[in-house]
């Protein structure tokens, strides 16, 4: 595979822009982490509400609703977790000045993210049209399942758009070998949606 090198901007010198970047990088990182913590609190609130309602009912799933398809969800989970691994290697290759492999891993991450969303759409279609489980018409089960997985799916959709924008920016030379905080933030966000899915997959499909 042909290996191209990264675009280099004015990173070598200590001009005003680079100094500004160095001064604000830690603040930007803290801002991104605080955003992820706030998102974590949002998901935690819904997860605890779901677990509370689930445990206060009589049996789970409620009568008339069958268990979710674990086999298909396992495959979809592996697709999302795989995208976390490819995203990690995309950033690593960027750090090591290997644009060709960065592009390959970044595109693989985007494709796997879209694959996960397609899998979720397929699962929603099956649930709604075959099992007749809906958000409003299936009690706590439908409401909590579609709210939490829908919220997560929305995050993944935003993440895919975010990664596409990051990729286009990196192609157009917005980031350099030394200045790539956007890619770091994108990787953090993508890992976050992966980790949230570990919890959602466990509580909806495995317990």
């Amino acid at each position: 595979m042909a290996v191209a090198s990264l675009p280099h901007g004015s990173s070598a010198g200590h001009d005003g822009v680079d100094q500004l970047y160095a001064d604000t990088r830690a603040l930007r990182l803290q801002g991104m982490l605080l955003f992820l913590v706030s998102d974590c609190i949002l998901f935690s609130s819904f997860i605890f509400a779901y677990l509370y309602m689930r445990n206060s009912g009589q049996g789970w799933p409620p009568a008339g609703i069958s268990r979710l398809d674990v086999a298909f969800a396992s495959v979809n989970s592996v697709v999302l977790f795989g995208s976390g691994a490819t995203m990690h290697y995309a950033l690593e290759n960027w750090k090591h000045n290997n644009f060709g492999r960065y592009a390959l891993f970044m595109l693989a991450t985007i494709v796997l993210g879209i694959g996960f969303l397609s899998g979720q759409a397929y699962e929603y279609t099956n649930l709604i049209f075959k099992e007749h489980v809906t958000w409003a018409g299936s009690g706590i089960f439908g409401a909590s399942f579609f709210t939490l997985t829908g919220m997560h799916g929305f995050h993944v959709s935003v993440g895919v758009l975010y990664l596409i924008i990051l990729f286009l920016q990196s192609v157009h030379g917005v980031y350099t070998k030394d200045k790539y905080f956007g890619l770091t933030a994108g990787t953090l966000y993508w890992h976050f949606v992966d980790v949230i899915w570990v919890v959602l997959f466990s509580i909806f499909y495995l317990i």
Binding site: Q30, L33, V70, S77, F81, H191, V195, V198, F201
Partner: peptide, 28 residues
């Protein structure tokens, strides 16, 4: 700091992958 968070996330990703494999194997 960013690398510490990455390590935490990779650890959780590892656990998630194991959980998915065990679910596929019908253990979970």
């Amino acid at each position: 700091l960013d690398n510490q968070v990455f390590k935490l996330m990779l650890g959780l990703l590892f656990i998630g992958a194991i959980v998915a494999a065990l679910a596929g194997a019908n253990v979970l």
